[in-house]
Design a protein around this nucleic acid. Sequence first.
DNA 1: GGGTTATAGGAAACCGGTGTCAATAACAAT
DNA 2: ATTGTTATTGACACCGGTTTCCTATAACCC
Lengths: 342, 342
Amino acid sequence: MKRTNAKPTINDVARLSGVSKKTVSRVINNSALLNDDTRNRVLKIIAELGYVPNPQARALALRRNFLIGLIHDNPNAQMVLNVQQGILEALQDSDFGLLIRPVDRTSPQMLDDIRNFLERQRLFGVVILPPISENDAIARLCDEIGCRYARMGSAELDDARHMVASNDRQAVREAVAHLIEQGHRTIGMIKGPHGFRSATERRLGFEDALRDAGIKLPKSLTAEGNYRFESGLAAANRLLDLSPRPTAIFASNDEMAAGVVHAARQRDLSVPEDLSIIGFDDTSIAAHMWPPLTTVRWPIISMARSAALKLVGDMIHPDSEVDEPSMFVSTLVRRASVAPPR
Amino acid sequence: MKRTNAKPTINDVARLSGVSKKTVSRVINNSALLNDDTRNRVLKIIAELGYVPNPQARALALRRNFLIGLIHDNPNAQMVLNVQQGILEALQDSDFGLLIRPVDRTSPQMLDDIRNFLERQRLFGVVILPPISENDAIARLCDEIGCRYARMGSAELDDARHMVASNDRQAVREAVAHLIEQGHRTIGMIKGPHGFRSATERRLGFEDALRDAGIKLPKSLTAEGNYRFESGLAAANRLLDLSPRPTAIFASNDEMAAGVVHAARQRDLSVPEDLSIIGFDDTSIAAHMWPPLTTVRWPIISMARSAALKLVGDMIHPDSEVDEPSMFVSTLVRRASVAPPR
DNA sequence: GGGTTATAGGAAACCGGTGTCAATAACAAT
DNA sequence: ATTGTTATTGACACCGGTTTCCTATAACCC
């Protein structure tokens, strides 16, 4: 088999196998109304030629591209990358590609931007990351345009068909219970940014744990961050200025937890002896920092894989009626950043 | 202006403005041979209709998609993300999209995979990340297929049209000179993986600095890593077992440097008092770890932006003959992980 | 054996743009 | 006045698939 310069088209296949374009098209699309002989003959030629249908022509005719979009507006780089990894794992060995589209949540034209993106690219589907996945208008937009979508979330499932979620609240509850169990009573909390569902869920989990233990804490022990390192550093500085100083801090993500470690070190507090810290996400930084961070493992890669399979699963595995799991469990990973208070 | 359900096509524009499809096409593509009156009339209709050309149809007709690919096989997550960010910055406000394609360098079919990807998607161009950018076969493949490409590299420019590079060797030379200046004489080196150009360049820079200072070190002070945290940890453990123990270690990237910090902490060595460390990349981990890491800032985002502009610059900015800079300078960022030896 | 379905497969239109080439008009040159 | 040149525009085929509509053949029924 020689590789010729010009790529074979459906016409070549049709000519060589002595059938019409339409029949080849039927073979490609697995049409039922086909004689097995014909199908096999065509398949043989396709294999010999190494024919692959032209995605652009298909996209034009079908009004639908074999591309999955990733819409995100996420402050956490590591998380975005993990999501990409998960999606790509799901797309592996399929003909689907992954198109990246960051958006600006603060822009008034965001919705128009997204509409434009979806309509123009005629995406097969999109995965929407938190926090922007919490925006219902985007889901409605997808419905209207007729674009499949899968939202990743941090709370219970509103709609299992379009949603992949985790139990952040319960996971945080357990994490903070761990701190209390170690003897901590003055526990600081660094919230995520206002308006984020994940931030709310994690805060609720924190409050759950305190309530469970019958602990009442002043509001001043809660500070708000924006999921970025610097905001964690600043929030920790506020908390550590308090008197009495908290003996433990729960940060709503790992990056902010790294900021807390920074703040502690700057004032010569040692972790975990003087200050216990728990984060959330279990991104790579958690295991690589010193001390290794006790954190909640958020199975974001699996969630992303599942989200992508929700979109394309029936295309890639037409036979198996795989029902992708939609609810994922976050669990506490105990490392070295928690110890009993001195 | 109402948004109708069906998106306007080029035919609608042509009919309403009383010209032919072809003329509309000329307007869209900024053809020079056009009467200004006609152009303005058509532009007006386009604006009124909110017409946007269909990318799939264009891709089919032009045999070229308005998509940029990112081919990578990179062990460092943060770096990949930074590159994406740089490319997306360059693509902003253009109609180009970014398609992600990780490949497996160890697979024998890698080249076929890439060929398939390029041919099928008919990409406008690809940005190729190190280390895979060092593979000349991929560049030849792009030439053959007729796909634009921009390689990112760590060494001098082989071909400025297709290459964006940085002066790793010189940057490392200066970094290690900094250690020597501080009084270090027994300096460990953690190389990148065998066969990587960046690894070679950084090793050469290290040797340059020693030669400059007239220092001769045993081969045992050099260990090899694979740019991952764990490999840095393992390599550091080997180096720190040596006697005499090195008082400083240069790691070929930040992630391995984080591993070195880890190793030091595990044996109760304090950084920088007992061990000075310098990394390379200046990814976010460098500033967020403790102590903040002295490292070489590799302007990867700018390089990626430049690479993308090399591909599409003449499309986005047809007028300005911007000559994208191709050679980037890496510089030493002094933070807190270096001190004179005790 | 004639009529009725299924089934297989072809011709041509279509998706929405672009390329080629010829036609027209305006204008200059001879 | 005739011819040549240039600027502007349109007609039509084409990119490589899918879809619609329709026909031919074979199998099945009574």
